[in-house]
Amino acid sequence: MSEQIREQISAFLDGELPSSETELLLKRLTRDAELRESFGRYALVGECVRGGGHARLTQGFAARVNRAIDGDSVADDPQPQPRRATGWWRPLAGAAVAASVAAVAVVALQQRAVSPPGVPAVQIMASGGLPAIQSGAGPSPTPTIQFAAAGRQVSPGQVTEPGSYVVPPSSSEGPTPLPAARLTNYVFAHSKYSSVMGQNDVLNDLLSEADADAAGDASQDRRAAP
């Protein structure tokens, strides 16, 4: 990322970028996936630096921030990384309308993944009920959806100190990956009653290519690539 772009993004996030330049930045961002990733890292790191994330700035923090912004791996960082919950169904977080769409979308992908040739990808129950996700219906086991985080570039949350990570603490020893096909149904049903704030997540994720990730197809590899 060039210094000019970095300054543009910084000015944008500070609300100081003129609207004409904002339009140009927007166009660049919509065209350039790599730039969007940089933008995302920069924005979240910016939150930490501004105090929004309550990050504790310690020795080496700035260097790690810069590496994160530039997309460099910090895997060699000696700091222990906070435990990360598995996010295999990110695109499905409970939103009213959108989660239902997500569920069906994933049904299609799931069925495509497990059904023999000639079997319709999407099955809608005759009663008009929820779409059926038959996790064991196909000849091969249902793929357990693994979040791509393990192979992804470090996120700004990971470059802050342990204890300042965005995922809240849990009393569990660690999350067990649960089959997406089954849990999608719960999200679908929950979506009608979920807090309205959650809709944003789902809508945004739905409109992205994240569903393809959930199906474990090639796009997961793309996003997991460093």
Partner: peptide, 28 residues
């Protein structure tokens, strides 16, 4: 087990021979 669900979490367990699953936009 536990899973991340967008901005929230889902947790599933077996109680009295029944599958019990809680889902919400809340901490784990």
């Amino acid at each position: 087990g536990l899973a991340r669900v967008g901005s929230g979490f889902a947790f599933s367990t077996v109680i009295q021979g029944h599958q019990v699953t809680a889902v919400g936009e809340v901490p784990a």
